[in-house]
Structures are given as C-alpha cells and as structure tokens.
C-alpha cells in the first residue's frame, strides 16, 4: 500500500532549496483551499446558505473514483469522470431539493440541515465502500523536475495552472460577462431578475453543477496528495470556510488570498515546529488575527444566514 502521508514527504523531500520547497507545498495546499472556497462562495452567492456538506460532495467523487478504479478496474480517467458526475448530481440535488427549501430568517437552520446531509453522505459512502483510508493514485506526483533547487512535480503544476485559470475564469465570468451580470442579479433578487427575463432556475442549476465539479476536482487532487476516506475533506473544508468567513463571503479576491495564505502559513508552521503543529498554528493565528484586526476589516457587509 502506498504511503498515506505524502504531505510530510513532499515537505521533507531532499532539495537544494528547502525554503522554496516549503513555499511551493504551502502554495499548492493553499490553492486547493482557495478552489474549494470558490465553489463554496459561488453556492453562497446564489443561495445565501452555508453548505456544511460541500466537502463531502467532493469526497463522494474522489472516494467513488477510487472504488471504481481499484475494485472494478476501470481506467482512472473514466473512474474520475464518473465520480465527478456523481458529485454534480449530488450537489445539484442538495441545491434543488434541500437548500431552496430552507426558509429565510431562521438562523443556524442551514447549518443544521447541511450537517444532516454531511452525516448522510458520510454514512452512505462508508456503507457502500468502507470506513478505511486508502491511497489514491498520485496523479503526476512521481513526475518530477528541479527548478531553482525546488523539486516540482506534475501534480503541483496542475494545481497551480488550474488555480489560476479557474479563479481567473470565474472572476472574468462574474465581472465582465452578461452571464455573470445575470448571475449576480438573480443572486441579489431572483424575482426581479426573473421578471427581467433571466432564467433563474437554469442559472442556479448551472451554479450547483459548476460547484459540484469544482468540489470533485479539489477532492481528487487532495486525495492524490494525502489519501481518501469518508472524512478526509473535513479539515480542508474547515480551512476554506474559515478563510471565507475572515475574508468575507461577499468579496472575491480577499478570501481566496487568505485561503492561499493559510496554506503557506500551515506549511511554514510544520517546517518550523514539526508535523503536529500545523493545525494548532493555523487556528491560533485565526484567533489572534481576528482578535487584533481593526473592526472595519472584520465587519461583514452582508452577514450570511447561519
């Protein structure tokens, strides 16, 4: 069985530029947080709902892809494709059947409802596959080259390219296109947007589909660097969620930059204080940052429903 702790391996890998190696590792982790957050934010923009189950949607894609590949012997791209379709179906079902039914003005209800879905998806995957952790194919992790003393693998490059293109693409879509304007209009006031001829239902379905695909993509990439089980996406979701809350879910670049910053800081903490220091260092920083940050930076322009 392959190592389930690749994260430590890429941090401690022999390279002539350990600091550069560290920054690369942190950047790629941070980009994964940012990509997941992007999907989370897109859903939030449309539904004004915190979807606690969003990470599990990605888990469904990656865990089922692993199962189709390892147990049924399907080629990896086909297995990942089926997993992504499952994630799209599950995410769209959550959006259409559940999220739209959550009444407004009930604080915390979205958190509880999506927590129920989180537990349901976790249980379904544990029942259908199992409750163990499994090594996922490394997806280019073994194809390496050295740039400036830093060992760069194809997986890192894929994450950086995807990160730049997806984040840039969504930004252009939202800010520069008619479709983006219609999306923003339907998020702001669906009734007025519909009366102006915008197909709100189709736009929402498209948003849920896109978010599901993004969750699948991130989950597969995270699995390729760590391992896959029914819970592995929860820490990733928490860090993405935290970045979104600190940066503001109604902003675009600020939360994504914070997500990348969390990845880099986490890598630095692990490098300096050891592998067990990553999580406490991140959460300690969050507490300190929010405690000392001037109020004008922490005031929410539009508070989320939860």
């Amino acid at each position: 069985m392959k190592s389930t702790n690749r994260k430590e391996r890429w941090i401690t890998v022999e390279s002539s530029n350990p600091f550069g190696q560290l920054i690369l590792g942190g950047l790629t982790s941070g980009l994964l947080y940012a990509l997941l957050l992007l999907g989370f934010m897109v859903v939030f923009q449309v539904s004004k709902t915190v979807n606690f189950a969003f990470g599990q949607v990605g888990m469904v894609a990656a865990f089922s892809a692993w199962f189709f590949w390892s147990s049924l012997g399907l080629p990896l791209p086909v297995a990942i494709g089926i997993g992504a379709i499952l994630a799209v179906v599950v995410n769209s079902a959550i959006g259409i059947i559940v999220i739209t039914k959550i009444p407004a003005g009930r604080p915390g209800l979205d958190l509880v409802v999506t927590l129920g879905i989180f537990l349901f998806l976790t249980a379904v995957m544990q029942l259908l596959i199992d409750a163990n952790a499994h090594a996922f194919p490394s997806l280019g992790g073994d194809k390496r080259t050295v740039l400036g003393g830093v060992v760069v693998n194809a997986n890192d490059v894929a994450i950086m390219v995807l990160g730049v293109f997806v984040i840039g693409g969504v930004y252009v879509l939202f800010s520069r296109t008619t479709l983006g304007m219609e999306l923003r209009a339907s998020a702001e006031n669906a009734d007025i947007a519909a009366s102006a001829g915008v197909n709100v239902r189709l736009l929402r379905l498209g948003t849920w589909t896109f978010a599901g695909l993004l969750a699948a993509l991130v989950a597969v990439l995270v699995a390729s660097r760590l391992s896959v089980d029914a819970f592995y996406m929860t820490p990733v979701l928490i860090k993405a969620f935290v970045a979104g809350m600190i940066g503001g879910m109604d902003r675009f670049f600020a939360p994504l930059v914070i997500a990348i910053g969390i990845g880099v800081y986490e890598a630095l903490a692990i490098f300096i204080w050891g592998s067990s220091a990553g999580t406490p260092a991140v959460f300690l920083l969050i507490i300190i940052a929010l405690a000392v940050m001037p109020k004008r930076f922490t005031a929410a322009r539009h508070e989320v429903r939860a």
Binding site: V242, I246, I286, A291, T298, A300, V304
Partner: peptide, 11 residues
C-alpha cells in the same frame, strides 16, 4: 460579528 465569532470558537 456573530459568524466570525463562530469561527473563533471553532478555532
């Protein structure tokens, strides 16, 4: 704000 406080408590 309440949600950021929730994040602090989560942390």
């Amino acid at each position: 704000s309440p949600l950021r406080l929730a994040i602090v408590t989560l942390a």
